[in-house]
Design a protein around this nucleic acid. Structure first.
Lengths: 153, 153
DNA sequence: TATTGTTATACTCTATAACTATA
DNA sequence: TATAGTTATAGAGTATAACAATA
């Protein structure tokens, strides 16, 4: 009723957190068997999307710390989903590269991820989901700066 | 091609997470001096909004675990922002109750929280923010997965 | 001297299970 | 027997700082 009761309900941050928890939960329900967390899936997808990028670039694209990325890459490499390939000209840089298994798992997981999205966003119509996605992209700002990319929202 | 590069950019969960991180960061920038985290603010606001509720109810309202709530209440009580008042008829129940200091801090913090929202959502117009809030509320409104049901790994 | 990746470490947040005291 | 709160503990997840190899 009064402003006292609505303090949290009026906050984007509050609902963003709750929405993310729901999204994470739905992800876990469908993808637990694959052993993938949202972050591990994000790494696989980003490695696939940015071939040739070093770990630091992958980390930056995901908003993660380089030392955090080491552990994530360790996990994925330990499961044979990717390999660290030394960069052709800069031997400091290791380029995460998907193995056949990694690519297969990514292809297997992606429809499950979309299914989890449809599950936790079932309260919204397709048009509303698209609208929500559009607004969230704008919120993120210029999303991930990609080499040679175009837009600016 | 596009399906490969857009795997993450098409996901609500991905953008919800990034949005929440942005919200959390903006909150920290403005609220760090107060010593409040988003969750601690949420507890204060919920205690204010639900006088007479026990810790378990407060926890449920925030989607948190009862044992997690103990620690949060501990922190707030240790700083003199609330007190545990034994329930009138059920002596098992402790009712978190704001002190004058707690209420004052809540009143002080709330405009700062709104300022942090305006900061991290600056890319959106007022109408877009309202629309985003509506959609996120609808998302939250659907059956909330229980806290324990999510993490079975 | 700067940069990439790595390691060691610590800190935060949260959940699980066992325990207490009430009911 | 069931419930509210608590405790101890463990598991993610992440960040900071120091270090080695390379540029």
């Amino acid at each position: 009723m009064s402003s006292t009761e609505d303090r949290l309900d009026d906050l984007l941050g509050y609902h963003l957190r709750r929405g993310q928890l729901r999204a994470f939960g739905a992800f876990a329900e469908l993808l637990a068997p694959s052993g993938l967390t949202p972050m591990l899936y994000g790494v696989l997808a980003t490695v696939a999307a940015r071939p040739g990028d070093g770990q630091r670039d992958i980390a930056a694209a995901l908003g993660a710390d380089p030392s955090t990325m080491v552990r994530l890459i360790d996990q994925l490499e330990g499961r044979g989903l990717l390999r660290r390939v030394t960069h052709t000209t800069d031997r400091r840089t290791s380029v995460p590269t998907l193995t056949a298994e990694g690519r297969a798992l990514l292809e297997h997981a992606t429809p499950l991820v979309h299914a989890s999205e449809e599950r936790f966003a079932a309260a919204l119509s397709a048009a509303e989901r698209a609208q929500l996605l559009r607004l969230l992209r704008r919120l993120d700002g210029a999303a991930v700066p990609e080499p040679g990319a175009l837009s600016s929202g």
